[in-house]
Deep mutational scan, measured.
Amino acid sequence: ATNIVGKVKWYNSTKNAGFIEQDNGGKDVFVHKSAVDAAGLHSLEEGQDVIFDLEEKQGKAYAVNLRIK
Rank of each mutant, 00 (worst) to 15 (best):
A1K: 15
A1F: 12
T2D: 06
N3D: 11
I4F: 08
I4V: 11
V5F: 13
V5N: 13
V5C: 14
G6Q: 01
G6S: 01
K7T: 08
K7Y: 05
K7L: 03
K7R: 13
K7C: 06
V8C: 03
V8P: 01
W10A: 04
W10N: 04
W10G: 03
W10T: 05
Y11T: 06
Y11I: 07
Y11A: 03
Y11S: 03
N12D: 12
N12V: 06
S13P: 14
T14N: 12
T14E: 12
T14L: 13
T14V: 12
T14D: 11
K15C: 12
K15A: 10
N16V: 04
N16S: 11
N16M: 13
A17C: 15
A17I: 15
A17P: 01
G18Y: 07
G18Q: 01
G18S: 01
G18M: 05
G18T: 02
G18K: 01
F19G: 03
F19W: 14
I20W: 00
I20G: 00
E21V: 13
Q22D: 05
Q22V: 14
Q22K: 08
Q22L: 13
D23S: 15
D23G: 14
N24R: 10
N24K: 10
G25Y: 07
G25D: 07
G25P: 06
G25K: 08
G26A: 10
G26K: 10
G26W: 07
G26S: 09
K27L: 09
K27D: 10
K27M: 10
D28R: 09
D28S: 08
D28E: 07
D28A: 09
V29E: 00
H32C: 11
K33N: 05
K33I: 07
S34V: 08
S34I: 08
S34T: 11
S34W: 11
A35V: 08
A35W: 04
A35E: 09
V36E: 00
V36Q: 01
D37L: 15
D37A: 12
D37W: 14
D37P: 02
A38I: 08
A38H: 08
A38S: 08
A38R: 10
A39Q: 03
A39L: 07
G40T: 04
G40Y: 05
G40L: 05
L41I: 10
L41Q: 04
L41V: 08
H42F: 12
H42Q: 12
H42T: 13
H42S: 12
S43T: 14
L44I: 08
L44T: 01
E45N: 11
E45M: 13
E45L: 13
G47L: 03
G47F: 04
G47K: 05
G47W: 04
Q48P: 01
Q48S: 08
D49V: 15
D49N: 12
V50M: 05
I51C: 08
D53M: 03
D53S: 03
D53H: 03
L54I: 15
E55V: 15
E55R: 11
E55L: 13
E55G: 06
E56D: 08
E56P: 03
K57E: 07
Q58A: 13
G59I: 02
G59F: 05
G59S: 06
K60C: 12
Y62N: 05
Y62I: 06
Y62A: 05
Y62R: 06
A63R: 00
A63W: 01
A63H: 01
V64I: 11
N65S: 04
N65P: 00
N65Q: 04
L66P: 01
L66Y: 00
L66F: 01
L66M: 03
L66W: 00
R67E: 04
R67F: 04
I68H: 05
I68V: 13
I68R: 06
K69S: 12
K69E: 10
